[in-house]
Lab assay of single mutants.
Amino acid sequence: MDETGKELVLALYDYQEKSPREVTMKKGDILTLLNSTNKDWWKVEVKITVNGKTYERQGAVPAAYVKKL
């Protein structure tokens, strides 16, 4: 869990989004888990830093590609 009490997951593999509802992640990324009720796809929040600014993006990733921490 992070400092706000939200559950975290670890990306076990790289994943490139294939639709606007998904998010890209790299192996080793730590993501915030938002919903894991679907056994195949979990909704997560990814933090992306671009030019020193951090953005948050929500989307789905394959459940088999992440592990709860």
Score class of each variant (00 low, 15 high):
residue 51 N to T: 03
residue 37 T to C: 15
residue 28 G to M: 03
residue 5 G to E: 13
residue 48 I to Y: 13
residue 67 K to M: 14
residue 17 E to G: 15
residue 30 I to L: 07
residue 26 K to D: 02
residue 14 D to A: 05
residue 35 N to Q: 10
residue 38 N to K: 06
residue 11 A to D: 01
residue 51 N to H: 09
residue 22 E to V: 03
residue 37 T to V: 09
residue 7 E to I: 14
residue 2 D to M: 14
residue 4 T to L: 12
residue 5 G to Q: 13
residue 62 P to N: 04
residue 16 Q to K: 11
residue 31 L to R: 00
residue 15 Y to S: 00
residue 33 L to D: 01
residue 57 R to K: 13
residue 60 A to F: 15
residue 59 G to W: 07
residue 24 T to K: 03
residue 37 T to D: 15
residue 42 W to K: 00
residue 53 K to T: 11
residue 14 D to G: 05
residue 26 K to H: 10
residue 38 N to W: 05
residue 52 G to A: 04
residue 3 E to F: 12
residue 1 M to S: 13
residue 45 E to P: 00
residue 30 I to N: 00
residue 42 W to F: 06
residue 45 E to A: 15
residue 62 P to T: 04
residue 14 D to E: 04
residue 26 K to E: 04
residue 27 K to V: 06
residue 31 L to N: 00
residue 15 Y to G: 02
residue 63 A to I: 03
residue 7 E to T: 13
residue 40 D to F: 15
residue 13 Y to F: 12
residue 53 K to S: 09
residue 30 I to R: 04
residue 19 S to D: 10
residue 48 I to D: 04
residue 65 Y to A: 13
residue 7 E to M: 11
residue 40 D to N: 11
residue 59 G to I: 08
residue 23 V to H: 02
residue 49 T to V: 13
residue 10 L to F: 08
residue 49 T to L: 10
residue 65 Y to E: 04
residue 23 V to I: 14
residue 62 P to D: 05
residue 66 V to P: 04
residue 34 L to V: 11
residue 7 E to Y: 10
residue 1 M to Y: 12
residue 60 A to W: 15
residue 29 D to N: 05
residue 20 P to C: 10
residue 10 L to A: 04
residue 54 T to N: 08
residue 61 V to M: 02
residue 60 A to G: 07
residue 34 L to I: 15
residue 66 V to Y: 03
residue 69 L to H: 04
residue 27 K to W: 04
residue 31 L to F: 07
residue 42 W to P: 00
residue 25 M to E: 02
residue 31 L to P: 00
residue 63 A to F: 02
residue 48 I to N: 06
residue 56 E to M: 15
residue 45 E to H: 06
residue 11 A to P: 02
residue 69 L to R: 01
residue 48 I to K: 08
residue 42 W to N: 00
residue 24 T to Y: 03
residue 15 Y to A: 02
residue 32 T to H: 09
residue 50 V to W: 08
residue 6 K to S: 10
residue 49 T to Q: 10
residue 22 E to F: 05
residue 27 K to I: 05
residue 46 V to A: 08
residue 62 P to L: 07
residue 55 Y to F: 13
residue 17 E to D: 03
residue 54 T to F: 09
residue 9 V to I: 07
residue 25 M to T: 02
residue 17 E to W: 05
residue 27 K to H: 05
residue 37 T to P: 03
residue 56 E to F: 15
residue 67 K to F: 07
residue 52 G to H: 05
residue 9 V to R: 01
residue 16 Q to W: 11
residue 46 V to F: 06
residue 22 E to R: 03
residue 18 K to P: 04
residue 47 K to H: 11
residue 69 L to T: 05
residue 47 K to P: 05
residue 7 E to A: 11
residue 18 K to G: 07
residue 30 I to K: 04
residue 64 A to S: 14
residue 48 I to T: 09
residue 44 V to Q: 00
residue 6 K to Q: 11
residue 41 W to H: 01
